[in-house]
Design a protein around this nucleic acid. Structure first.
Lengths: 164, 164
DNA sequence: CTTGGAAAGTCAACAAGGCTGACGTAAATT
DNA sequence: AATTTACGTCAGCCTTGTTGACTTTCCAAG
């Protein structure tokens, strides 16, 4: 599998192979979001709410600013989502004690229940895919995805990966 | 890496590993779409136009119905996008000769130029990621993605993969 | 102590791109 | 002749993103 000096073994870098990868990302991402989307439709929530819930669960007590930089949206956009989650009692917002300008975000019991439901569904699909593909494929999967990220996003990703 | 009867080597299926995969998908997809998004901003087009252009280029002469089932959106949604692309002379729509109800879609010269620009950018990122991760990782990447798709999407994906 | 600036929140307006429902037309099929 | 299919279109709605302008709160530096 290693490439030779002549480069004959670089066939995995042909435009055709790259196109397959691009289309695989497109179709797979649809599957990736399908289950949570299905759960959320009917509730007043959407994918944006799912993302907020996921990362608050992941880093309890995170600030709004931090969440903004992870999600890469404007504060107005995030605020609309957070407001409904707080109003509905899924998220608790606590004024910072060291810096009272900051708001620290936590999932409530109710929030944790929805998070569970969403992530159970998403993990079930991921688990099935992992099991089908096997551990070596999973390692490759993660390597390629990580290499595909913008440097800033890779930083966020690794911070989460280790921090947790 | 192979699992034993006891299952001790199934560590790659832990919730923690699955969560990492989920977050990797999230951050990587952002990178995946970032370059085309950047190119399209400022033009009157968006990600939906990119997708239509990609699959028309991929299957010249495809019908509207076929495109609908690949993209998984409503005809009203697709039509809005196609209309602007046709008006702007990027896509040509031809009445079917065997079945005159169908419209066969093709990229014009102008359409091909934009397609090139978009796919060059997207492939460049994919190529860099592939090169960094190496051929074995790429194989695993594609395996996991394929396993993650809904069956119907996997059918579409494989039809494209072989048909081209 | 005052003031500058950062963090957070809010209001308003807008755009892209999804969706549903209803309707029309041409062509194929039964 | 009647029905079905493929496509287009109008109207209206929702989510989720955007900018811009503004206020409140608070920390920290002058």
């Amino acid at each position: 599998m290693a490439e030779t000096a002549g480069g004959e073994a670089l066939l995995f870098l042909t435009d055709e192979q790259l196109r397959k990868g691009i289309e695989a990302m497109f179709f797979a991402y649809r599957g990736f979001t399908a289950d949570p989307d299905r759960i959320l439709e009917g509730m007043d929530y959407g994918r944006a709410h799912h993302r907020a819930i996921h990362f608050i669960h992941r880093s309890p007590g995170t600030t709004v600013s931090n969440l903004l930089s992870i999600l890469g949206v404007t504060k107005q956009s995030l605020n609309r989502v957070l407001r409904t989650l707080i109003e509905d009692g899924l998220v608790r917002s606590e004024k910072g004690r060291v810096d009272a300008r900051e708001r620290h975000l936590y999932l409530t019991e109710k929030g944790l229940i929805l998070e569970r439901e969403l992530s159970d569904a998403q993990r079930a699909r991921m688990r099935a895919a992992y099991r089908t593909a096997g551990p070596a494929a999973v390692a490759g999967f993660r390597q390629v995805l990580e290499a595909m990220m913008d440097p800033e996003m890779r930083r966020q990703y690794n911070r989460l990966k280790e921090g947790g």
